[in-house]
């Protein structure tokens, strides 16, 4: 599935890249070999970034590469030099969380000299319930702009349609079908279906043709979920 050393998550704004990146980084630590490094390249949005899981990641032995000190909270296009280091380190698994749209993917383009094609996969995360990417046409157009800005072909599509707490198996599968159409139009494989763990069983029961990534949603506003431990940041619940 996502069997490249460097996994880049790209996609339209708000498609779920950060949540998926956190999940893959934490899940990756359980496999044999070196723990993955999570690179937060989000220069687009100021809130709800994967770096908000810093403390949790550190506890779990996953290194986070993101701006340091008070710049962690800045909305500035900061690309820290360590990014190039881990990309050039053979045997170091890397999960890269790009910012939204082509604006966010431009950063990937600037790293093309250290991203070897054979070991790098750029996956398009799609949520068909987002307003500006609600149709196959819009997703394909956005994918082409992202690909051009990143100066890299898209390796595959990850279906991630949801409505947060109002998600149903139908919503997931409806989006999954559209994601399949978009992948065919782009000439790439639909490589996985991401779904919140509480719905994984129901979705699996309906028969899905690709591997399922069951996500424990961690990036939540403070008021969400009364009894769960809150481990990070001034802002966000990462439980």
């Amino acid at each position: 599935m996502l069997n490249r050393r460097i996994v880049i998550l790209a996609g339209h704004f708000g498609s779920g890249k950060s949540e998926l990146a956190l999940h893959l980084a934490l899940a990756g630590r359980a496999t044999n070999g070196r723990a993955p490094v999570l690179v937060d390249l989000d220069i687009v949005k100021p809130y709800f970034r994967s770096r908000d899981g810093k403390q949790l990641l550190e506890q779990q032995g996953v290194r986070l590469i993101a701006p340091a000190g008070e710049n962690l909270y800045a909305d500035l296009p900061i690309i820290v030099p360590q990014v190039r280091g881990v990309c050039s380190d053979p045997g170091q698994p890397v999960i890269m969380d790009a910012g939204g749209d082509e604006t966010g993917s431009r950063v990937i383009g600037s790293l093309s000299d250290v991203l070897q094609d054979a070991e790098t996969g750029m996956y398009l995360v799609v949520n068909f319930r987002r307003p500006l990417s609600a149709t196959v046409d819009a997703v394909v157009a956005s994918a082409n702009r992202i690909s051009a800005a990143a100066r890299r072909r898209i390796t595959g599509v990850i279906s991630n349609t949801h409505l947060m707490d109002e998600t149903t198996a139908e919503i997931v599968l409806e989006g999954h079908e559209l994601a399949g159409v978009a992948a065919r139009r782009l000439g790439v494989d639909l490589v996985a279906l991401a779904v919140e763990d509480t719905l994984a069983h129901a979705v699996r029961a309906r028969g899905v043709d690709v591997p399922l990534i069951a996500i424990n949603r961690r990036i939540r506003p403070q008021f969400d979920g009364p009894k769960k431990p809150r481990t990070t940041g001034p802002l966000f619940v990462v439980a």
Binding site: F13, N127, R129, R130, P131, A134, H162, L163, M164, E166
Partner: peptide, 15 residues
């Protein structure tokens, strides 16, 4: 219109 997953800022603009 079917429910969309919107960022507050987008919903304000659409409104």
């Amino acid at each position: 219109m079917a429910k969309k997953l919107m960022k507050g800022a987008e919903a304000i603009g659409e409104a």
